[in-house]
Design a protein around this nucleic acid. Sequence first.
DNA 1: CAATGACTGGCAAACGTTTGCCAAAATTTG
DNA 2: CAAATTTTGGCAAACGTTTGCCAGTCATTG
Lengths: 341, 341
Amino acid sequence: MTITDVAREAGVAASTVSRALTNPDRVNVVTREHVQQVAARLGYRASPAARALGTGRTATLALVLPDITNPYFSGLIRGAERQAEATGHILVIGDSEENARAEARMVERLAPGVDGFLLGSSRLPEAKVLQFDAAMPVVLVNRRVPGVTSVSPDQQGGTRQIVEHLVALGHRRATFLAGPPESWLGRQRWAGISSAAKKHGLKVRRLGPYHPSVEGGLLAGEAALADGATAVIAHNDLMAIGALKRMKARGVSVPGDVSIVGFDDIFGADFCDPPLTTLSDRTEQAGRSAVDLLVALVREQARKENDAPADIVAPTQLVVRGSTGPAPTTPPPAPNEGPVR
Amino acid sequence: MTITDVAREAGVAASTVSRALTNPDRVNVVTREHVQQVAARLGYRASPAARALGTGRTATLALVLPDITNPYFSGLIRGAERQAEATGHILVIGDSEENARAEARMVERLAPGVDGFLLGSSRLPEAKVLQFDAAMPVVLVNRRVPGVTSVSPDQQGGTRQIVEHLVALGHRRATFLAGPPESWLGRQRWAGISSAAKKHGLKVRRLGPYHPSVEGGLLAGEAALADGATAVIAHNDLMAIGALKRMKARGVSVPGDVSIVGFDDIFGADFCDPPLTTLSDRTEQAGRSAVDLLVALVREQARKENDAPADIVAPTQLVVRGSTGPAPTTPPPAPNEGPVR
DNA sequence: CAATGACTGGCAAACGTTTGCCAAAATTTG
DNA sequence: CAAATTTTGGCAAACGTTTGCCAGTCATTG
C-alpha cells in the first residue's frame, strides 16, 4: 500500500497525493478531498522511513533517563509521551542506568533515528551536554547548563522551605544523605540546603554519596543514625524510604527521635509509614513542557533561527506529612542492636 | 556523513562499504578492516531511515501499555528496554490510558514505523488482537489469545495460593474487588479465585468494576466494608493500597478486622502500612522474554516460516506480608462514621 | 594445463516519499 | 478581450541504504 497505489486509484500523480495529505493548501479542494477519501478507503499510511529519508525528519523524539524504574520518572514519561503524541511525534525511551558512559552511548546510538533529545536528570559531564546540544536539538530536564534549553524544578526555593520547616520544628543539627555526584539536582540540593541552613543557624553535615535507591537509603540510614542528628534530608524519596525502613528496623522512632525529609513526592511517599514529608514538583507538566520546547527547537533548526534558549524553572512545594515532627528535647536514644534485616 | 563519503575515502564502492559493515563475510578481510577503520575514523553511522526503506525493517519495537505510570509496568519496561538494546533494537513506548480504542489507534499509528508489537495487558477485544497478529508480529504480555505468541504469569496457581492462604487463616467469606472488564488478567484472577474458593469452601463475592488505581481502590474499599467479608482480594496492588487507605481512614484494623491481598507486588507494597500480602511475578524477566520472542517472530516473518506460537506461562509467588492475618473470631465492628478524607 | 568453482568488488536498480521546477489552466486585472 | 497573475497538477530528481547480478580474479581439481 504505497502512495503510488493511492495515486493510481485516485487517477492523479503521486506528488498530488503527497500534497493532498501533507500540504493541503497546495491542491484544489475537490481533488484534495477525493484523494483523501481514496487514501482513507485504502487505509493508506505513509512510510515513516521514506518520509524521513526525503525530509531528514523522523517525527521521533528520544527520552533518556538514568533509571526508568524510579517512580519519580513515571510522571515525566507520561507527560512526555502524551505531548509527543499530541504533536504527532513518537517517543523512544532509553535507560542509562545511572551511568554517564552508557548515557552517551545511548544518545549516539539513538541520534541518527530521532529529531531530538530529552535528557532527564542527565549524568553527562557538562562538556558532553554542550557537545550534543551543538550537534542536535536537546532539552534538559532536571538540569541546567548555560546556553542549553531546559526545564527544572526550583531547588533553591524548595530547599529553603525544607530548612525553614525543620528549623521551625526546633531542629539544630541535620544530616544530608547525598546521591550520585553526577546528579546536578543532587548538587543543587546540597548547595541549597547548606546555604539556607547557614542562614538559619542549622548545622548540617553531608554523608555519601549513596546509590539513589531504596537500597542506597538503607545504608545511608545506618550512617545517619551514627551521625546523631535529629533530622535527615535524603537526596530523594527512594533513599528517604530506605532510611525510614532502616530506622524502623533499628527501633528508632520517626518522627519521635528523628525527622526525615525526601525529594520528589513519588508514588508511595504518601502511604509509607509514617508518610513522608517531601518536596514535590509537577513532573508530568515538566514532561509536557519539555516536549513542547524540543518540538520548537526542531522547527527552529529547520528554519535556521536561533533565539536565546528557554529556561523554565518550575515551582516546587513542600508536602508536610508524618515523617517530620518537633525535635526531641533529649538526644535520641542509642539505636537498638536489634536484627538489621 | 553518508556511505558514499566513506566509500570515497576508503577508495571502494558504496556497496562494498555496506557489505563490510553489515555482512562482513561477503568481503575480503583486508578490505573489510580497512573500510571499518575508515568508517570508524569518520564516525559514520548508517541512516536508519535509508536502511529501513531498503530492507523494510526498522529495528524498532513498540511497547504499548494501559498505564505507563503504574509501577507494575516499570519492570516490564526496563526488561523490554534492556533486551531491545541487547538485540540491537530501539524501543518506542505508548500509553493507551486503559482505553481499547486508544490502544487500537496507537497500534495503527505506530505500525508503519516498527517491526512488531509488545502489547502489555492489552485491553483490545480478542478479534482486534487476532487482526493485528495476522498483519504483523505481535507478542502479548499478561494476556493469552489462542494462536498468538504470549508470556503471562500463572494466575491459576497464583490464585490457588491466595485462596489456600486465606482459608488456612480461617477466613470463610471474601470479597473480590474487580478491575476493568477489558482486563484479561482480571478475568483470569476472578475465574481462578472463584474456582479455588469453591474447592475450599470459601464464599467469595465480586464487586466492581473499579478503575485499577489507588483512587479506584478507595471506592472499592468502601464497598468492601459494606460487604462485610473478613478478607478482601483486590484486582491489583494499586487498588489494594487504596482499599488499605480507606480501611485506615475508617478505623478498621488490617489485618485485625479484615485481611487484604493484592496482585503484582509493585514498588511500595513492601512498605505500606501494613505491608501488603500480594502475588508476585517477575515482570522484568517477562519483558526480556517477550522481546526475545518478538525478535524471533520478526526474523521468522522475514524467512516466511511459521512455527506454532510460543506461549510462556511464568511462575508466580505469593508474598505474605502484614496485611493478612487470622480471621477475626467475632464479626468485624461496624466502621466508624469518622472523617473519610 | 584446462576446466571448474569459489571469492571478491562494482554497477545499478530498487525502496516510498517530498519538493523544485515547469507548463497548463483558471482567474483577475486593465 | 488581451495580458498578467495565480492556481493547480505532473515530472523527475533526490534522500542513503541494500542487494541481485555480473565479471574478473584466484585457487582448486582432474
